[in-house]
């Protein structure tokens, strides 16, 4: 019955690598997606604003 154990270990090792690469690509794409730049800029600066009231409406 060692087959299942070996199989699982093999899967873990190989899948882990693909998963790592895939996820990195997704994250990089998200971070560098041109359309995302404006909201990022805005978010980074918005916290410095001092309009200290909740928004209601």
């Amino acid at each position: 019955m060692t087959i299942t154990h070996d199989l699982l270990v093999w899967f873990s090792k190989s899948f882990g690598l693909f998963y790592l690469i895939g996820l990195s690509l997704i994250v990089l794409a998200y971070a560098y997606w041109p359309a995302n730049q404006k909201p990022f800029e805005h978010a980074a600066n918005a916290i410095l604003d001092d309009d200290d009231k909740p928004y209601r409406g």
Binding site: L23, V27, A31, F40, E41, A44, N45, I47, L48
Partner: peptide, 19 residues
């Protein structure tokens, strides 16, 4: 950033390092 009065140096990097 709040205390320093400056935005994060790279917002993008903060997201990449988050993941």
């Amino acid at each position: 950033p709040k205390r320093a009065g400056r935005p994060i140096y790279s917002y993008r990097m903060s997201i990449i390092s988050f993941w």
